[in-house]
Nucleic acid binder design. Sequence first.
DNA 1: ATAAACTCTATAAAAAAAGTAGGGTTTATG
DNA 2: CATAAACCCTACTTTTTTTATAGAGTTTAT
Lengths: 138, 138
Amino acid sequence: MLSKKTKYAFHALTYLGKHRDQKTVLIQDIAAEYGISHKFLENILLELKKAGVLGSKKGKGGGYYLIKDPKDVALSKVIRLLDGPIALLPCVSLNYYEPCAECKSEVACGLNKVMIQVRDEMLNVLENKSLADILDKE
Amino acid sequence: MLSKKTKYAFHALTYLGKHRDQKTVLIQDIAAEYGISHKFLENILLELKKAGVLGSKKGKGGGYYLIKDPKDVALSKVIRLLDGPIALLPCVSLNYYEPCAECKSEVACGLNKVMIQVRDEMLNVLENKSLADILDKE
DNA sequence: ATAAACTCTATAAAAAAAGTAGGGTTTATG
DNA sequence: CATAAACCCTACTTTTTTTATAGAGTTTAT
């Protein structure tokens, strides 16, 4: 399951996507809309900013805004940023690979093979769907 | 990511599948093969037994054995048993459904829609692949 | 100058995962 | 029938991860 962090990130991005007409959106507006803790959301938006997905404006009248076109924000990117690996096993992760401690030979591991298939099916959706696809359906 | 519990369950099932010629297999043999704590594995095997995947024989000379044909042990079943939901969000889980606290309308939720697609792609593999497919590749 | 708003780091609390302990029950065998 | 082997069951502890909070700092409009 996705962490709340990731889920909240998607909600926040959706909110920002819906309000692209205004220059900036306040953290507290997003937090209020979804009943999320202001401070918790703050950390999430900051991560999205550092990753180049959001921009911000400091000071009075400031706030956050989408810096990218929604179609260029792949769902996989958001998940990896907040949650880490998408794959179900470390040994099949493309971005967070680690060998399984108990595994003698990855090449001869049947579990490894099937989990590669699962990963690829997941990525087939998550890499090709974007924030724009979420916005389309709201 | 899958929990260690689930990963160990798959390893144990694989081991049992490979040793179907012998009547029973000892917990300690599986634990030694993969470097897993005996007691931790014990709990896992017990859950698999209660779920009807494994059988056991008590007393001296006892042990565990596969009670089903490997092709009838869907990967999804093992994951749901030990890890719970396969879906990435509670609101799209078929077996462990829960509404998202912050979500006003599931029908109007774009995230919900896309996560249903991810779930279905995952299940397309996990429901149709079985222990037999893992064994085939070892 | 002041208040609004994001920035940053650290810490605390809660929940989940991983692992441990130990006595109970069953059974083969000498 | 005594004994040792092996699974059965429940509870507990430890560790890790997730979730949430706190508070001081920086920037900017007015």
